[in-house]
Structures are given as C-alpha cells and as structure tokens.
Design a protein around this nucleic acid. Structure first.
Lengths: 213, 213
DNA sequence: GAATTAATTGAACGTTCGTTTTATTATTGC
DNA sequence: GCAATAATAAAACGAACGTTCAATTAATTC
C-alpha cells in the first residue's frame, strides 16, 4: 500500500547505508540488486530512490563518507608536535584500528572503485592520495632527521599502506588476536621496515602500543 | 552465416582467455558481459559457449591456471639446499616478478573470488594457502636458525604477501622504476622487516637482487 | 569429391536489472 | 481536524543479461 506506521526517513536512510555496506562487502556492488537491498532494509525497492537518486550515487556516498571518516580520525589522532617515530606510530595505530573497526566499509572502498564514474573516481582517489601523502611526509621527515633508513619514501609508503590495509583480509574479530595485539605487531614490523633500530626508541614504541591495546 | 574462413578453435580459445583477463581486470567479472567479451574477440556470444560451458567456469579456469602458474614458477625458482635468507630472497623475487608480469591475471584472482561457487572458491583458496605455507615455512626455519627476528610467523607472512602483492596496484611498466629496481627495494624492506641486520648478509642480498635486475 | 566434423552465426528464451510513475497512507503543522 | 507533506507500496518500463538452439559454412578425412 503506502506509508507504513512508524516509518521515519532518517532511520530508513541509516538502515539503507548499513545494509548496503554489508551487502556490497559480501557480494560486490554489481552483484547486489536494489531489490535485494530493499528486502534487507524491509522496504520496497522504489523506496530506496527517495534517499539515493541512483545505485551509483549510493555507492559514492558510502565511499566518500568512509574516506572522510578516515581523514577525520587521523586529524584527531595526529600528534601536534612530535618526532617522526611518534607520528609514524600514531599513523599506523590509527590506520589499523580504523580499518579493522570498519572492515566492511574499507572493503567497499577498496574493491568497488571501478564501479564509479570517472569524475567520482577522481574525487575518491584525491582524498586517498591526500591521506597517503601524510605518511610520505612522515617518512621524509624521518629520513631527514636521520631516524629512518628508507630507500624510496614513495615506494615505502605504498608498501606500508598495503601491508596495513591487508589486515582486513584475514582479521576476524574475536579470533586468535585482539586489535591491540595486531596493532602492536604491525607497529614493530613497521619500525623495523623503516630502519628504526635504536633499542630505546623501540621499547618506547612497544610500550605505547601496549598501553593502547 | 556460420563457420568463418580461417577460424581455428585453439586460437579462438586463447583469444577468449586473453580478452577475458583484460576485461575482467578492467571492469570486473560481473560488469563484463558475454556479449562484450565476444565483441572483443571478434565473434558472436554464442561461440564462447563452445569453449566454456558457463561464464563462471571461464572465470574459474582463469584463476586456477593463474594459481598453477604461480606454484610452478615458485617450484622452479625455489633453491634446493639453501639457508632461510636465500630462500626468502628467492620467494620475494619470484612473487614480485610473477605478479608484475601478470598484473591483470593477479587482479582477477584477487578481486573476483566472491563470484565463485563455494566449491570452486575452496579449491582456489586451497592452492593459495599451500603457496603461502611455503613462506611461513621459510620464516619458521629462519627464526629457528636465529637469522630472522619475527614475533608471529603467520602474521608476518600475511603482511609480507600483502605488501608484495600490493605492487600491482600502483606499478605501471615503463614508468619511474624497472621491475628489477622494485624487486631490489622490496627485498631490502623484507629483510629489514624480518630482522635481518647482519651487514654481510644484507650486502649479499642486495648484490643478488641487482644481478637479477 | 562425398561424408564427416569443427566452428560459428543469428535469433530467440525467460529472467532480472535499475528506474519511473502513480496511487495511497501516515505524520506534521496550523 | 484539515491541509500539506513525507514515506512508502504496487505495478510497470525498456534494456540487458546468460544461455540455448537450429541452421549454415569451412575444414578435414577417407
């Protein structure tokens, strides 16, 4: 029939976003049909179009907000005046924590880029590049301050990001390792990778990671 | 019409495989239509079904052969009697070289797993696990022989593989870096990551990498 | 050179897709 | 409590999808 009792635009929109993230992460954007999404929300397919004009716009919204969330999380976690080691620690910790906590959204943002129109793809990639640039800056500062030993900062940044983001492929909450343990291990791998060998600094890093765990 | 002059089953099948890898890598499995694939090959859609019974079987064939190729390449490159450092070097070098040279096929094998039926997915994952197991064994041997310093071999293996495979995301042939340069940089990052700090061993590793570049 | 086999076309099948339109009902503001 | 608006249902649209089938022609075999 028509409007149902208790229906609320805000709640419906939130339910659509959540269901869409889960369905796209599980089956893929192309494989998820609007009817399937609507059924998951408990609504007819036509109702979705009150909130998102097209399927692609829905995907884009999910991705954009995920990237905005990542950037905001980093801005909040970023140490104001700190050396390269502490800044790198904060970057690794924020990245891993954020990505584990939003595994499904990360999956969507990483896997479904090719379903975006060129303009929207550019927009998302711009946000991603800006975020990655922060890591390159940290690495560059560390190399200049002689606390990191890195051949190629650009290449190292990509390697680190792929290594860290890869966590979502195998990590399952509640299994062998906690988020804190994973973060601590990745922190020590990262520090070794960038050539931080000073025992004092390393001990500091480990303690820092364990405190947060 | 019907059979065309010069038509040849073997050539057509090879053309289908190649076109399919490229199209799936670019647009995704779900987004590629059989008609689009047929057009790329220069044939009608119905002709594809002479070679592959279903679209999914085509995808599965591409993935299985990619994994078989990776395993075979490693079996050929694997040093018979060598220490953990040389075996790890060989693994990294083989992995990166293979994945760069078959970027599109790797993309397909990594991104389209969810389009496989459960049984076929299991089959591909089994092959992948066996391949990754080799790396874990090398790491374990290195830890036991006290040449590697690694907290968690399983976690380190995953981190290394994701780091290395990530190369295909940003690497474009003919740009700033050659395959040899990339491999050499990743080799030194890998060695630092697993805690190989001995100057002698590292020099050996670098020279080895540069020779192959 | 006739018979057989291999390779392909063209048309069609039923299904599902994203999306639009129209009608209908619940809620809100005055 | 009545008008305005917000939220949804139901049905339908044309297009595209994977796949099948019968017909047709090229190549091969004997």
């Amino acid at each position: 029939m028509a409007r149902t009792t208790g229906s609320d635009g805000e709640k419906t929109e939130a339910a659509i976003r959540e269901a869409a993230v889960n369905l796209i992460a599980r089956f893929g954007y192309e494989a998820m049909s609007m009817r399937q999404l609507a059924a998951e929300v408990g609504v007819q397919a036509a109702a979705l179009y009150r909130y998102f004009p097209t399927k692609e716009e829905l995907l884009f919204t999910l991705m954009r907000e995920h990237m905005e969330g990542l950037t905001e999380a980093w801005e909040a976690a970023k140490p104001a005046d700190a050396g390269p080691i502490r800044r790198l620690s904060a970057y690794v910790e924020n990245h891993i924590t954020f990505h584990i906590e939003r595994r499904h959204a990360t999956h969507v943002s990483n896997m479904e880029l090719r379903s975006l129109s060129p303009e929207r793809l550019t927009q998302i990639l711009r946000m991603r590049t800006a975020y990655e640039k922060e890591l390159r800056a940290i690495l560059r500062d560390g190399v200049e301050a002689d606390v990191f030993s890195v051949d190629d900062t650009g290449l190292t940044a990509m390697a680190l990001i792929q290594m860290m983001t890869g966590v979502i492929v195998w990590f399952r909450p509640g299994e062998r390792l906690s988020i804190g343990e994973v973060t601590a291990t990745y922190l020590s791998m990262t520090m070794r990778l960038v050539g931080v060998t000073s025992a004092g600094e390393e001990r500091h890093v480990h303690e820092h990671a364990q405190l947060r765990a």
